[in-house]
Structure formats: C-alpha cells, structure tokens
C-alpha cells in the first residue's frame, strides 16, 4: 500500500509539471487555434535560464560551503527565469506567428515546428548538447511517513505549480486582460469590434503561457536532476497530450489532463515496467481521440453548415 501512495505522490508531482506546460498549449490554442509546437522549447529555455541565473547568483559557492541555497534567491531564480521566458514567448509570437496569423491554419502550424527546431538547435549551439546537472537551488530533505518517502522537492513542485495555477485562474477570471482573453477565445472578431486590443491580449497570452512553462522547466530540472537541449521534445509532447486529454482550449482541463498523465506514467512505471512509461501517454492520446475527441472537460462545438 505504501508503494502505491509513493507512486501517487510522485505521479502528482510529475503531473503538476505537465499541467504547467499544458496550460500554455491550451491558452494559445483557445485563442489562435494554433498548436504552438515551440512551447516545449520555451520550457527547455526556461530550465536553462534557471540554470544560468542560479549559477550567476552563486549557487556553487553555497554548495562548496556546504550550505543550502537561500530560499529567497531560489524564488528570485524562479521569477527571473519566468520573466525571461515570457519575453521569449512574446518574441516568438511577434516574429514568427503574427506575420502568418491570417494565413491558412497549416502555415502557422509548420512555422511552429520550424521555431521548435530552431530553438533546439540554438540551444545545442549555446549550451552544448551535453546534459547538465541541475543546480541544487533547493537542498533535498526527506520525510518518511508510514513507509512513504516525501522529499521537500516533490512537495515544492506541487505547491509552486498549485500556486501558479490558482494565480492563473484568478487572473483569467478577475482581471481585465483575463476577461479579454476569454472573449477572444470565444469570438475573436466580435472582441476586436468591441474595442479589445487583440495583439496586446495575444501577447499577454504568450507571456503568461511561457512564464508557466519556465516554472515547469525549473521544477523539472529539480526533479529529474539533469537538463539537456532536447528535454522539451518528449515532455512538451506529453504536456500537449495532457491538454488534449483535458479538452484543448480548456484551462481546468489542462490541469486535470496534466495530473492524470503524470499519474498514469508513474503507475505504469511502477506496476508494469518503466519501459512503458512514455508509451502509456500516447496510448491515452489514441484512446481519448477515439472515444472522446473533445477531451474530458471539452464541449462539442457544433459546426454551422
């Protein structure tokens, strides 16, 4: 039984990282109907910004002195990496997607794949293709309770992800920009004619989605110990599946989808074989597309004929 709870805890922690990334996919899709394939690379860049920021703030010195990195500085790393990725997201939108926004839908999709490949290769050039050990911006502490081991890192991942998701919910439901985003996702033409600045709202969507992905990147680095320039490919794809599972375009759906994918992956690795942990995600994708293509929380949109 304790084994089972262990898997659940690990699954929720991994799932909340997927959820953070899935939010960016789903928000952009909700408004532009674009699958932003470069989102996984924004996640990777976020992890690397965290890496460099931590080393700039002297994480090695703290390590050498045998002291933990101060929590305040860890938060600074998180916030600055999120800001840097928000900027990257806004740049990607302005340079790559805006010029093709009114082109047929296939054009932006292929552009997104191009941006993704560009960023992967840029990262290999800038950071070398070698995996890097992620700096211990949080020193691992273990708690054991009834045979279940919980580390402070798993807890922190869950807490940070939860806080960001609650923040996003409040933003979307309560702020002016959030209301504009919802209006855009329901009818972009009507929103424009009601005086909403569509470009500014889309920019905000990319900024927020990218910042959340960066947070995911740092948490992923902490959890998985190493990062590399191609880390966004598989993780990004899984987060995309999470968004589809929850109902793409649906914000609570992305959270539910992310957690479920994390749990499924962890339980498969624990009870079947670690070899199937990646396959299960895509099996879920196939099943959901066959049985409920609109996703768990999605609604069927009636096409007007």
């Amino acid at each position: 039984m304790s084994e089972f709870f262990q898997q659940i805890i690990n699954g929720l922690s991994l799932g909340s990282i997927y959820a953070l990334i899935a939010l960016g996919y789903t928000m952009v899709y909700g408004i532009l109907k674009l699958i932003n394939f470069a989102h996984g690379e924004v996640f990777m860049m976020g992890a690397y910004s965290g890496y460099y920021l931590a080393s700039w703030l002297g994480v090695e010195r703290y390590q050498a002195a045998g002291r933990g990195f101060p929590l305040g500085l860890a938060l600074v790393v998180l916030v600055l990496a999120m800001a840097a990725s928000a900027l990257l997201g806004v740049l990607i939108e302005a340079l790559a997607y805006r010029p093709v926004r009114s082109a047929p839908r296939l054009t932006p999709l292929i552009t997104a794949i191009g941006v993704s490949l560009f960023l992967q290769n840029a990262a290999m050039l800038l950071f070398t293709p070698n995996p890097r050990a992620y700096p211990p911006i949080l020193r691992e502490l273990r708690f054991a309770a009834g045979g279940v081991i919980v580390t402070n890192i798993k807890l922190a991942i869950f807490v940070v992800a939860l806080a960001l998701m609650v923040g996003l919910h409040l933003f979307v439901q309560r702020t002016w920009t959030g209301r504009a985003m919802r209006a855009l996702s329901m009818n972009i033409d009507a929103a424009r004619l009601m005086g909403i600045d569509v470009n500014a709202t889309i920019r905000a969507t990319f900024a927020i989605g990218s910042a959340l992905a960066a947070a995911g990147g740092i948490l992923f680095g902490l959890d998985q110990i190493t990062i590399n320039p191609l880390m966004g490919v598989l993780t990004g794809l899984k987060a995309f599946v999470a968004a589809v599972l929850g109902g793409i375009g649906n914000i609570p759906g992305a959270v539910v989808g992310g957690l479920l994918i994390g749990l499924a992956e962890q339980l498969t690795a624990g009870y079947l074989s670690p070899d199937y942990r990646d396959a299960i995600t895509f099996l879920i994708l196939v099943v959901i597309l066959v049985l409920k293509p609109e996703g768990l929380l999605g609604v069927v949109r009636q096409e007007k004929v």
């Binding site: 209301r179 329901m186 009818n187 033409d189 009507a190």
Partner: peptide
C-alpha cells in the same frame, strides 16, 4: 452582427 456573436460561455 447578423449572425449572432455573443461571448457564449460568459
């Protein structure tokens, strides 16, 4: 609008 464009789920 001729074809109604309210923000349906708000």
């Amino acid at each position: 609008f001729q074809n109604i464009r309210v923000f349906r789920s708000m």
